[in-house]
């Protein structure tokens, strides 16, 4: 169903999500909901010398949000904090390689919103 709906990339990342799980004592973490549907995504980050050493996500969410979280966490790993904080929405949407309806763009961007909040809120 996922491939027919959203293309091969989302289908692949929904079926085999990368970086799903939690970190022991993460350096930054945030969790938020998609007001459209109540989907919840949590992202945890390990930070070492101003770089993201590891990123994990948990989410009870739709195919689009899960695939976006899977892709995003992979892309964040290795980035400097400045790069991660400035990660553009367009880059994530491009990586998903699917023309999303306007109503579903928010699903794709939920993980990015959560990651940004985690970076802003880190102690």
């Amino acid at each position: 169903m996922s491939a027919a709906l959203y293309g091969a990339v989302i289908a692949e990342h929904f079926r085999r999500p990368r970086n799903q799980g939690a970190l022991d004592a993460p350096d930054a973490a945030h969790e938020d909901v998609n007001p459209l549907c109540g989907d919840r995504v949590r992202i945890e980050l390990r930070i070492a010398s101003d770089r993201i050493a590891a990123a994990r996500f948990k989410g009870d969410a739709c195919m689009v949000a899960v695939a976006a979280a899977s892709l995003l966490t992979g892309m964040l790993e290795g980035m400097t904090l400045a790069e991660a904080a400035a990660f553009p929405e367009a880059r994530l949407l491009e990586a998903l390689q699917a023309p999303l309806r306007p109503s579903r763009v928010g699903c794709a961007l939920l993980p990015l919103r959560v990651a940004r909040a985690a970076l802003r809120g880190r102690p």
Partner: peptide, 29 residues
């Protein structure tokens, strides 16, 4: 095994208009 929004998107491909989500009733959900 299918998220309501994914199912609604699947139905939409067949021209079927349904609503999916919490229907503005989160406490009930």
């Amino acid at each position: 095994g299918v998220h309501p929004h994914d199912l609604a998107a699947f139905l939409d491909l067949r021209g079927i208009c349904v609503r999916a989500g919490n229907h503005c009733a989160q406490p009930l959900m």
